[in-house]
Simulated scan of single mutants.
Amino acid sequence: MNSKKWIKILLTLCALAVGFVGGVNYLVDPFDVFHTKILKEQFQINERFIKIEFLEKNHNKFDSYMFGSCRIGTTPPDVLNQYMNDANFYNFTISSANLYDYLLHLQYFIKKEYPLKNLYLEIDIDNMDNYGRNESDYLRKFHPYVLNQSLYSYYISYLTGFFPFNIRGKIELNIKRDDITTYSLETGIWGKPIKEKEIQENPLKFISEEPSFHIKNTRLIKNSSKLENLKALSEIVNLSKKNNINLIVFTTPYNKNMMDNFILNDYLEFLKEISSVINFYDFTGYNSITTNNTNYYEPSHYRENVGRLIAAKIFNDKSIDVPKDFGVLVTKDNINEHLENLRKQVEDYELEKNLK
């Protein structure tokens, strides 16, 4: 067989392989980019793409936004609408978001002249160890409009990519239907209906059977991205002032097991850096909410009731019983006292844990 025939065979096989991969990617649609909906339950979705796609057509329905990682995603916008006259919030929760995501999207919203009166911004403590976004992370790939790139090339990249884990995960979820996540594009929120039912019916059983509550973690996460985060947060504050945006900043109340991942001095340093840029509400630490596992689906994600308590504390809603140890308004004036209180809180928690 001559070389020309070998080349033709090779090219044919390559074309068939590309066609097969593209067909699987399109039909299974692991990130819900193509919206084929052949498999109903979604294992993962690229919220950065889907929500910009939605807002391009619907941004005039909203004038306020909730910015945060997936942790803020359980809080319905109506929780905030009730506290702010005439506000209409959209929950722009996006997976594993950090300050780079918030800055880039805020810049885009302003550039596109989205109505924007209020910005309710949640900062995760683990943001101190990361900044930016990896281009190879297809679950978290920005909408091309945000980066001023081609939509056509974007779709091609999702057709020709290799996503065995994501494809397998979506297929298995639609067969087993054991940990379904629901998504509401109209409000931006997500939910865990099966886990929610289990917690409500038998919280002690749920806690005992959720393995992530029983893992012993080590304090390894450092404050390694301080310069990038400080610069981004400062830019967000300046853009908010320049564009008359009411900016409200608060920190994520991680479950105690998640809190066990952070090096104490680095965690406290990160909080001090935030306070140097803006006043914020701090819900981190080991308090009556974060040490109660029934408030969480697992150590990383709190339930809707916690989001309601956060808002009640921030907006001073006396009709809701917010624990006294949950949430502190932190300023430049009280930051040192607050950090000392947190240090003692952590040390007391560690001592009690070691005595068990």
Rank of each mutant, 00 (worst) to 15 (best):
M1N: 05
W6M: 11
L13W: 13
C14E: 03
A17I: 11
V18M: 13
F20Y: 13
V21P: 04
V21D: 05
N25F: 03
H35C: 00
K37E: 09
L39Q: 11
Q44A: 13
N46I: 03
I52R: 04
F54E: 10
F54P: 06
F62E: 03
D63Y: 03
Y83Q: 09
M84H: 14
N85H: 13
A87P: 12
S95A: 14
S96E: 10
Y102L: 04
L103G: 11
L116E: 06
L116W: 05
I123N: 00
I125N: 09
D126V: 07
N134P: 00
L139R: 14
Y145G: 15
Q149P: 05
S153C: 09
Y155N: 11
T160Q: 07
P164K: 01
I171H: 02
I171Q: 05
I175D: 05
D179S: 13
I180A: 04
L185A: 08
P193H: 07
K197Q: 14
I215F: 08
T218F: 15
E228Y: 14
N238L: 11
K241D: 09
V249H: 09
V249W: 00
V249E: 06
T251Q: 03
Y254R: 00
M259R: 10
N261K: 15
I263K: 15
N265R: 10
E269A: 14
E273K: 10
E273H: 13
Y281E: 07
G285W: 01
H301Q: 03
R308V: 07
I320F: 02
I320V: 14
I320P: 06
G327W: 05
V328Q: 11
N334W: 03
N334F: 07
Q345P: 02
V346A: 13
